[in-house]
Nucleic acid binder design. Structure first.
Lengths: 166, 166
DNA sequence: AATATTTTGTTATAGTGTAACGCAATCTTT
DNA sequence: AAAGATTGCGTTACACTATAACAAAATATT
């Protein structure tokens, strides 16, 4: 069992991985004087539990089960808050959301998304960042937001295409 | 007047730029034995006319004006065909479509999108491609599809934020 | 001309996301 | 602790994006 998730590694200790993410979220929000309300924390936990990008509407049933209102605005508000705090990212090409493993400083994610098992890995790739900045800079373009989403097959699914690591 | 569009340059000869794109599309489709029907050609022309990413539903009124059916499936079918031929790209972060300036070979675009005037430039950046391939490769990830969309401010809009180059 | 294939028309519906308003909970100031 | 201000939530309604399914028309093939 690993203490934290490895790239495309299905067998890490996911319970611990979730609770660490939640603890960090609580800590960051306390520090920033932001309110991690029960709904927001639940949405964050649900997203972490999946480890796959999760659509907004997939969250609604769980919210209803927990006794909350489960109309779309409820979950979108929670997601908006979590995004504003860097706790989740939105994957534009999937219309879905995923937990951010290092929310302590605002950043632009770069995602590797497995088409087969949907596992998604957030990279911190200096070379990619650098190449993008350099290209934009040479054209006089000022970057405000980056969307880098790579879809393909993770190592597991190249040899065992049907398996779902979660 | 320039014969072809320059990066974020509002004053190129856009009529010529459109007609060249259409001529190339006709040529490619003839070569590939694919049918560039009136609807498909009209959709392609409308997209090129805008030079900004265009939503599917923004195309419908023009289709109706031209006497075609203007229900969503009509335009989505045309867009699907044009994408399959590499003639247009979809911008995931905008739910919109834009003409491809070099459709002769299938490729993954990298887009610089101005938040203010919406001008969008497709890059062929070897360093970015290389960095992405290298990152993915070192993790054993096989790339199938890349989404790279950079939103920010183009040179024109950094000094004249209100101007619309189109 | 007959048949097969592709494209389009049409209706309906699924999926994603937001506006707007009022109430409730929390925070701030006194 | 009370009053007022701010923030978050419940609720309804709706806008925007995209596709399924089937029939009719147009085109290609034999």
């Amino acid at each position: 069992m690993n203490p934290s998730p490895l790239p495309f590694e299905p067998d890490h200790n996911h319970d611990r991985c979730i609770s660490e993410a939640l603890e960090q979220a609580r800590h960051l929000c306390r520090e920033r004087r932001q309110r991690l309300t029960p709904i927001r924390e639940l949405v964050l936990r649900l997203i972490w539990q999946s480890h796959q990008p999760l659509g907004a509407y997939e969250l609604l049933p769980a919210l209803a089960e927990a006794g909350f209102n489960s109309a779309p605005p409820t979950v979108y508000r929670a997601l908006e808050f979590l995004q504003s705090q860097g706790l989740v990212h939105r994957i534009a090409s999937l219309n879905a959301f995923i937990g951010c493993p290092h929310p302590e400083q605002s950043h632009q994610g770069c995602f590797l998304i497995c088409r087969s098992c949907k596992s998604t890995l957030e990279l911190e790739s200096q070379p990619i960042q650098q190449a993008i900045r350099s290209s934009a800079g040479s054209l006089g373009f000022t970057i405000e937001q980056e969307t880098v989403e790579i879809v393909g097959l993770c190592p597991n699914c190249q040899t065992r295409p049907q398996r779902d690591p979660q």
